[in-house]
Design a protein around this nucleic acid. Structure first.
Lengths: 202, 202
DNA sequence: ACTTTGAGCTTACAACTGTACGCCAATTTA
DNA sequence: TAAATTGGCGTACAGTTGTAAGCTCAAAGT
């Protein structure tokens, strides 16, 4: 089985090479097959033994990023159970994620509005997962109608993601301020949804 | 003066060529100087008589887009004075803008998280203008503290922009639904900010 | 032990990129 | 009218890209 093992290893080398070449100045679109192959330590044409396309690589990266997103949510839930305060804990956890995995978050952020419909769809699906889980959680907590919860979850995720995007261009010292602002926005939203909801059920 | 006149004309030809080559599948980054020159009807090297760089062209495009954004806000205000309902009128006006100028909106959306710091900065500035005007308006209307208004305006713009992004990939039939959802989110936010604000002034 | 498989390599090519250089011709200036 | 300026052109070059074709050779299958 050393055969398949070796293959998987260079496959990972390719994926790692791609991730490590992403940066603030370089998006996936401006990544070239040859560059990736070079950094992965293989010949350009060997790339095709693992991926048919750069697009296929990209979708793999998005999948991996989505996986990390789900881990993030799990971690947030754990912290909430211990620490209590739902909103602030969530935002803080998310900001940590962005700080420590900026390349991963940037990938999601960019390809969400990128030039490939397949990429956009993949990212949208990952974020939708995220929203759905959050909505489920909200519904348990506030016992509001499902559609309500979904709409609120979507807005929350939108606001948090936007803050994450700001964070990518901000020095670390500003993170507390960004976090605080976002927490306020989310509290407003939650409060409004709770009290306004009754007057306008649909 | 036919000299400068002619120059300005081909300059506009370049700008138009660039705009017309933007699409869902093609972002500014994947635009080539030669392609743009070809569509503008000039030789590749003639491009340099007008812009030092593709980047310089890009910043010009962003400026132009920002200008349209400000026109949009003016139009929204006019409609509000006639029609009343602030939130729904704003969202509807914005959705029309996105539908009719999708390439312009896409440019802003993409370069906001693009690979050029200069671009990101330029877009951020345009959106900040947008937010500031909205904040000014909110403050007049609700008489809340300035920081409050800015925070709320920022959240509103974030939510509306995000809906615009969704709209780019959605068939026209879904626009009313998207619009309705966003209006609800904005109402929640406004309501929450108004009532929650007193309890937590800062 | 023999054959098949397949990951990885080298070489090669055609397409495209940005841009340096120098010329032309028409407008503008002196 | 003579000189200077300048928008536009054609040519040319070096670099990069994706990928096709065919080889090698060690592991896996028989």
């Amino acid at each position: 089985m050393t055969r398949a093992e070796q293959k998987e290893r260079t496959r990972q080398a390719i994926i790692n090479a791609a991730f490590s070449q992403l940066s603030a100045e370089k998006g996936f679109a401006s990544l070239s097959l040859r560059e990736v192959a070079r950094e992965a330590g293989i010949a350009p044409t060997s790339f095709y033994r693992h991926f048919a396309d750069m697009d296929e690589l990209g979708l793999t990266l998005v999948d991996e990023a989505g996986l990390m997103l789900r881990q993030l949510m799990r971690q947030a839930r754990l912290r909430i159970e211990k620490h209590g305060s739902v909103i602030s804990t969530s935002v803080e956890t998310f900001m940590e994620f962005v700080a420590e995995n900026s390349n991963v978050f940037r990938l999601l952020l960019r390809e969400r509005s990128g030039t490939s419909a397949a990429f956009r769809g993949a990212v949208a699906r990952e974020i939708q997962h995220f929203c759905a889980e959050l909505a489920h959680y909200l519904r348990k907590q506030t016992q509001c109608p499902l559609e309500h919860a979904q709409l609120q979850a979507e807005a929350m995720v939108t606001l948090v993601f936007h803050t994450g995007a700001d964070a990518l261009d901000a020095p670390r010292e500003l993170y507390p301020q960004l976090t605080k602002r976002t927490i306020t926005q989310l509290r407003w939203l939650a409060h409004g949804a709770a009290s306004y909801g009754r007057k306008q059920p649909d």
